[in-house]
């Protein structure tokens, strides 16, 4: 009998040769299952710390700063985890799958709100300083500021922009040659009143991280019309809870904010938030 004709026993080895593939497949199932789980659509809206921005960066001749925070939608647990890594104190709220579209639509609305508050800031600062400006000059300034702030959304820039424009018109430096870091948030209305905004906690954290000395918030205990607590109360709570060092100054109007800055002693001694 030739060797090639030798009857072979059923080959158990062929079953064995698949065994390692089965083990590998099972082991690979673990990371790929976790990846699928992490990428499974789950939507969360979040707010997290941003930065304080000097108004001179948007071509306003002032020394004060406005604050922005990061807001957005995470589409899955992986994105949520990534945001959480960047800022462990980021706040998440579960939302539904339409949130992404709603967020995009909201950005359009917030753009309009930003333009409106810039308009009011220019008008209020002009009224306050009695600067002789023509309507054309105001319109030109409005367009220029809209362009400079195009990367920001929302109307919380109003108050600080108003103060910056007052500084510019009066050639003042409320920061006392950059000894002070003055920041704040709040909308500015046609009648120079300061309106309520969102994300006070994150804005305060951002300002504290940036070393701000003074932080303006809307004085809205009596006027707050939204759900939850007012900006003023939230600021007080946050300052106490996080033991913030910056001084929180609630203001009802642009005039009140400017008056506060004008009466600051030189050198400035920081007062505390607690009584």
């Amino acid at each position: 009998m030739k060797l090639s004709e030798t009857p072979l026993m059923p080959n158990k080895g062929s079953r064995k040769s698949y065994r390692h593939w089965i083990i590998v497949a099972l082991l690979l199932l673990i990371p790929f299952s976790v990846a699928v789980f992490a990428y499974w659509p789950r939507y969360y809206s979040f707010t997290t710390q941003g930065e304080i921005v000097p108004v001179h960066e948007i071509d306003v001749g002032g020394s004060v700063n406005f604050v922005y925070v990061q807001e957005g939608i995470t589409r899955n647990l992986y994105e949520k985890y990534s945001v959480g890594l960047l800022d462990p104190e980021a706040e998440f709220t579960k939302v539904n799958s339409t949130a992404k579209d709603d967020f995009s639509a909201m950005l359009g609305v917030e753009e309009d709100m930003r333009n409106e508050t810039i308009y009011h800031a220019i008008d209020s600062a002009t009224d306050l300083t009695s600067a002789p400006t023509t309507q054309d000059q105001r319109d030109e300034r409005l367009l220029q500021l809209i362009e400079e702030t195009s990367e920001y959304y929302g109307d919380s820039i109003g108050l600080m922009l108003g103060i910056g424009l007052v500084e510019e018109a009066l050639k003042k430096d409320y920061s006392k040659d950059e000894q002070l870091i003055i920041a704040g948030t709040g909308t500015l209305n046609e009648d120079h009143t300061v309106g309520s905004v969102g994300a006070i906690r994150d804005k305060l954290r951002t300002a504290e991280t940036a070393g701000a000395d003074i932080f303006f918030v809307p004085k809205d205990k009596e006027t707050f019309v939204y759900l939850g607590i007012s900006n003023e109360e939230e600021a007080e709570q946050t300052a106490e809870e996080l033991n913030l060092k910056l001084q929180i100054v609630p203001v009802a109007t642009l005039e009140e904010a400017v008056a506060f800055l004008q009466q600051l002693p030189n050198p400035y001694v920081r007062s505390v938030n607690k009584p």
Binding site: L27, I30, P31, V34, A35, A38, Y78, E79
Partner: peptide, 18 residues
């Protein structure tokens, strides 16, 4: 990249054990 990061991290630990 996110998927790659997740898979590589977990696979790395599996490979270490094996």
């Amino acid at each position: 990249y996110g998927i790659v990061e997740i898979v590589s991290t977990i696979l790395y630990y599996i490979v270490i054990i094996i």
